[in-house]
């Protein structure tokens, strides 16, 4: 479990992280979202005691990370792929890390098998692909069987099979009661893996919520309704304060049916009203934007590096190191 409290990091006059507070709960996968340079990596480094906060603090299982006597038992981290000496082989790399916590060599071989690196375990890491580097990084994060995982862009460089593998792995680890914080630029992937979200922009918290609520809030309350009695339904809904617009007619088994786009009433209420009035409903779909659309919408004002044509109010330093 991670508690971040009023965490702030300044580099000279630029503020990378600004009074950030959030919690990463055990048992769920929490997605850490933010545009490039919004302070995600800096926050992760501060949680791990690698960067010193200007003010505020981060607690891991109730303690500052630096005070933990066996930190790897509490947190396993993957900050960057291929953070390994190119001349060392994967097994020796993991062994060196394992020795710090008295983790036996047996466990090293176990995590090598878990991430599927057995065939290359004794090859020099210099020749590893990005995907193999990611798997090695995940292996090192899992070495001491930690109760919390912090993974920065874990699916970067993985092939579809690898992405699926890590999604299942993370869900499984969360189901065991571990707290998991992952950042990713792949929104579709995040939507599939995470259930909770911490969204930041310019180092500040924008929202701490669940994926479902985040998407729902960004989607508004528009509902698509299809009924053979569209006219009657329209009158009924208008009387209850809804806004109704015709949606594109959909052809179904040769019959043209009117589809409506209804605003201002939740789907449940629409169904209840139609049912009470004896009107048939063939389709009732709350309109949902994708996580990506919701994210773009929410962070539009806090994008650090924008392409030409979409100017931002001001820029400050930061970005991945």
């Amino acid at each position: 479990m991670i508690e971040v409290q009023r965490l702030t990091k300044r580099y000279g006059r630029t503020v990378a992280v600004d009074g950030l507070s959030f919690t990463v709960q055990p048992g769920v996968v929490t997605g850490f979202l933010g545009p490039n340079g919004s302070g995600k990596s800096t926050t992760m480094r501060m949680i791990l005691g690698l960067d010193r906060p200007t003010s505020g603090h981060a607690l891991v299982d109730g303690r500052p990370y630096r005070d933990l006597r066996a930190p790897a038992r509490h947190v396993g981290a993957l900050l960057e792929a291929r953070a390994i000496h190119t001349g060392r082989n994967a097994r020796n790399h993991l062994l060196a890390l394992a020795h710090t916590h008295g983790v036996p060599a047996r466990r090293v071989d176990e995590v090598i098998d878990l991430v599927g690196l057995r065939p290359v375990a004794t090859k020099r890491a210099g020749g590893f692909s990005l995907g193999m580097g990611q798997r090695l990084g995940i292996a090192s994060a899992l070495l001491a069987d930690p109760s919390t995982l912090i993974l920065d862009e874990p699916v970067n460089g993985l092939d579809p099979e690898g992405i699926r593998w890590i999604r299942d792995l993370l869900r499984g680890l969360a189901a065991e009661g571990r707290a998991i914080l992952i950042s990713s630029h792949l929104m579709s992937e995040m939507a599939l893996t995470a259930t909770h979200l911490v969204v930041i922009g310019r180092g500040r918290l924008i929202q701490e919520t669940t994926v479902a609520d985040f998407v729902r809030a960004a989607s508004g309350t528009r509902v698509r309704v299809r009924s053979p009695q569209a006219d009657a339904l329209t009158g009924l809904l208008l009387r209850h304060g809804a806004t109704v617009q015709p949606a594109d007619p959909v052809l179904s088994s040769g019959t043209s049916l009117d589809a409506l786009e209804v605003g201002g009433l939740p789907a449940e209420r629409i169904a209840d009203l139609a049912s009470a009035a004896g009107l048939a409903i063939y389709e009732l779909t709350p309109h949902l934007v994708s996580l990506e659309e919701a994210f773009m919408d929410t962070t539009r004002d806090s994008v650090e590096y924008a392409a030409a044509g979409s100017p931002v109010p001001h820029t400050s330093a930061g970005g991945a190191r």
Partner: peptide
């Protein structure tokens, strides 16, 4: 404070353990 279900088979960080780690790094 640590969740007892996790971290099985690990110990606290001690200087001898870190020395062993560094020895592994150097020789490998």
């Amino acid at each position: 404070l640590a969740d007892a279900r996790f971290g099985v088979g690990t110990g606290d960080v001690t200087l001898p353990r870190v020395i062993r780690s560094e020895w592994t790094k150097l020789r490998s």
